[in-house]
Amino acid sequence: MMKPNISVIISTYNSVEWLKKVLWGYNQQTYINFEVVIADDGSIEETKNTIDTLSKKVKYSITHVWHEDNGFQKSQILNKAIVACKAPYIIMSDGDCIPRKDFIQVHDTYKEEGYFLSGGYFMLPMNVSNLITKKDIESNICFSIDWLSENGLTKSFKNNKLKHTGLKAKFLNFITPTKPTWNGHNASGWKKDIIAINGFDERMQYGGQDRELGERLVNLGIKSKQIRYSAIVIHLDHPRGYANKESWKINNGIRKNTRSTKVNTTKYGIVKK
């Protein structure tokens, strides 16, 4: 098999119905020389069985990276997935984010040495999330504002994320007040840069661990580009039982130290120092 130019890391945990939709989304990509590495934070056997079945049906290769369930340890499993990536360039997203068919192509087009890319997501309500079928993903209709509106989506300025492509999307990337940060649901960068900062800080549980990785990339001298209106994923709704105030408090303290000391690596990452 040809070595992939891009590795896509998808994080997941016991959410097979959403993961199926996401993996079908990657099967529609216009860019074809990529692999998917699934960072599985301890799911039960059902997830493995689903991945094994879909691996035989999709056009790309899937590597399933798993560890035993020990609570929310997303940073740990992401580090293992980073090591497993075969390509020099990595896109990170989540198992609840269906990519539009040009998603990987956009990341490939904008990638540049010395930069990471910052994308966003388009949040769907639960009723619409449940409605989307494999057929809707294959036809790309689930990215149509008209179709989404017919099925209950309310009007919002954020709908521009799905309305515009090309130059209009570039213009919106340029004028948005949202800063380009590393977002776990939609960001990409060079594997060598991510390795240089030692990946994710494994002390961090839920709440900003992706942003902290981006802050260390910036401290390393890596710049960021905004592509939130060009690289599109639709985010399926779900409960967030893993969120808690204590982890946010710990993570905010680590991030504050990263920004104030300008540290560009961590002792608690891929390599334990």
Rank of each mutant, 00 (worst) to 15 (best):
56 K>W: 10
37 V>W: 00
212 E>G: 09
236 L>M: 10
74 K>G: 11
170 K>D: 13
135 K>T: 14
258 T>F: 10
172 L>F: 09
159 N>S: 14
201 D>G: 04
265 T>R: 09
64 H>F: 08
193 D>K: 00
149 S>I: 06
151 N>Q: 09
17 E>L: 13
127 N>D: 14
75 S>M: 02
172 L>E: 02
128 V>Y: 01
131 L>I: 05
267 K>G: 13
122 F>A: 02
159 N>R: 11
258 T>C: 11
73 Q>T: 14
242 Y>F: 13
213 L>Y: 02
180 P>H: 02
110 Y>V: 10
113 E>I: 13
27 N>P: 03
169 A>H: 04
32 I>A: 14
204 M>Q: 10
58 V>D: 05
208 G>N: 05
42 G>A: 01
176 T>Y: 08
217 L>D: 04
40 D>I: 03
220 L>M: 15
181 T>F: 15
261 T>Q: 02
25 G>D: 03
71 G>F: 07
143 F>L: 07
185 H>Q: 15
39 A>N: 06
142 C>P: 03
188 S>Y: 00
86 K>I: 08
64 H>K: 09
55 S>W: 01
272 K>Q: 15
124 L>M: 00
221 G>R: 03
207 G>P: 03
233 V>P: 05
37 V>I: 12
229 Y>C: 03
190 W>H: 12
244 N>H: 03
69 D>L: 10
35 E>V: 07
244 N>T: 02
169 A>P: 00
7 S>Q: 01
148 L>D: 04
156 S>N: 11
188 S>P: 00
40 D>G: 02
228 R>K: 15
96 D>I: 07
53 T>L: 15
219 N>I: 04
261 T>V: 07
182 W>D: 06
272 K>E: 12
270 I>Y: 05
35 E>Y: 08
19 L>R: 06
234 I>V: 02
20 K>S: 15
185 H>V: 14
194 I>F: 01
177 P>I: 04
13 Y>A: 08
54 L>G: 04
171 F>H: 13
49 N>P: 11
80 K>W: 10
237 D>Q: 11
